[in-house]
Deep mutational scan, measured.
Amino acid sequence: MSIQHFRVALIPFFAAFCLPVFAHPETLVKVKDAEDQLGARVGYIELDLNSGKILESFRPEERFPMMSTFKVLLCGAVLSRVDAGQEQLGRRIHYSQNDLVEYSPVTEKHLTDGMTVRELCSAAITMSDNTAANLLLTTIGGPKELTAFLHNMGDHVTRLDRWEPELNEAIPNDERDTTMPAAMATTLRKLLTGELLTLASRQQLIDWMEADKVAGPLLRSALPAGWFIADKSGAGERGSRGIIAALGPDGKPSRIVVIYTTGSQATMDERNRQIAEIGASLIKHW
């Protein structure tokens, strides 16, 4: 067993022997301040990774656009098919120029040779490549099948209805392509620590998230040296922004954090800054 596999296998073990965790309302004060600064709703939840206990939450059962955070769930569904012998990570998928959609920095470079399922998941999570996500959605049967996968996990809230990039439209009061912070946090925890996926697939999923290259201005910008984070960000229309993450000190994750916002007129930089400040408060009061 590799060191990384050992780390993920012992996530519940280490967490069980940690000192009790206590909620700190100071972080919620910052979440509410972010709402004021952005002029928009902000949803927040913080779960203990081992027990699933909610440590703090704000608007945990209000719907927010998922945006690209759905790509972690998508690759979880792909990995479940791999575990069941219905898919192979090494299978190569070929596609054409007509398949390319807006923001496809990886797939646009491989029109000639195609990409493997493993490479597509890596591109979808680490670079948020939209064509990679659409190609992977095709392998599982489309958005409705991802929703069905989530329902089978016990998540009857999260739903995907459309493809990239239309799913980022974020129309107010439109339930399409949305989740709730509580539902997303619980589902992410199941994917990373539950028995739904094999140990190898859980490790692969967290490795992809740990290698995320496009979430630097968010929670990662607030992390002290030595902290662990595996995350996936999302951005959408109407001032929408979000991030889902597993993080913790001492090089291992111990909490799940989900943050979503929508309806702001603020710039992307300002949305990023507010999420980073929430992260800084979380870490300060850990």
Rank of each mutant, 00 (worst) to 15 (best):
T261N: 03
A133C: 05
I125M: 11
A133R: 00
R255E: 03
L150D: 01
L197K: 06
E108W: 08
S104K: 02
T267G: 13
S240M: 03
M127Q: 11
M153W: 15
A148T: 14
R91V: 05
V106H: 08
L19R: 08
D177G: 03
I54K: 07
A235C: 03
R7K: 10
P105F: 05
T186E: 15
E35V: 04
F70W: 08
R41W: 07
V31K: 01
A235S: 08
T126Y: 04
H151S: 11
G234M: 05
G251L: 09
A215L: 03
A211Q: 14
L136T: 04
F58S: 10
F13I: 11
R189E: 09
L137V: 08
L150K: 00
I243H: 02
S51N: 12
V42C: 08
G76Y: 05
R81E: 07
T262S: 11
G248P: 00
A124T: 11
T138I: 11
T112G: 13
T158N: 01
L199N: 15
S240A: 13
A276N: 09
G114T: 04
T186R: 14
R189Q: 15
T262C: 10
M127C: 09
F64Q: 02
Y44E: 01
A15F: 15
D231W: 03
Y44H: 03
N272S: 05
L191F: 11
M115R: 05
A9R: 09
M66N: 02
Y95F: 14
T107K: 01
H94R: 13
L196Q: 15
N50K: 13
R81K: 14
T112M: 10
L192C: 08
M67A: 15
T147D: 09
E175M: 15
I171D: 13
P20W: 02
L196V: 14
S264G: 10
E169L: 13
Q203N: 13
A16Q: 12
A123N: 04
A40V: 06
A148M: 15
V214W: 05
P105K: 06
D174M: 04
N130T: 03
E35I: 03
L111N: 06
L28E: 06
I3A: 07
I3R: 08
R238N: 15
T27D: 04
D83Q: 09
L218G: 04
G39R: 14
M1N: 01
N98F: 15
F14M: 11
I125N: 03
G141I: 05
T262H: 14
E102N: 10
E195D: 13
P165C: 09
H151Q: 13
Q265V: 12
T138N: 15
E26D: 09
K284H: 10
V29C: 12
V8P: 10
R59G: 04
G263K: 06
N130V: 01
N152K: 13
A215P: 05
M115F: 04
S57E: 13
L136M: 07
I54T: 12
F13S: 08
T112E: 15
S240W: 01
V8A: 11
G142D: 06
E175Q: 14
L146F: 11
K32V: 10
D177W: 01
A215G: 09
I3L: 13
E270L: 10
R202V: 09
D36P: 05
A200N: 15
V42E: 00
V101W: 06
Y260I: 08
S201W: 03
M66E: 02
A15S: 15
T116L: 08
V82K: 06
T261D: 01
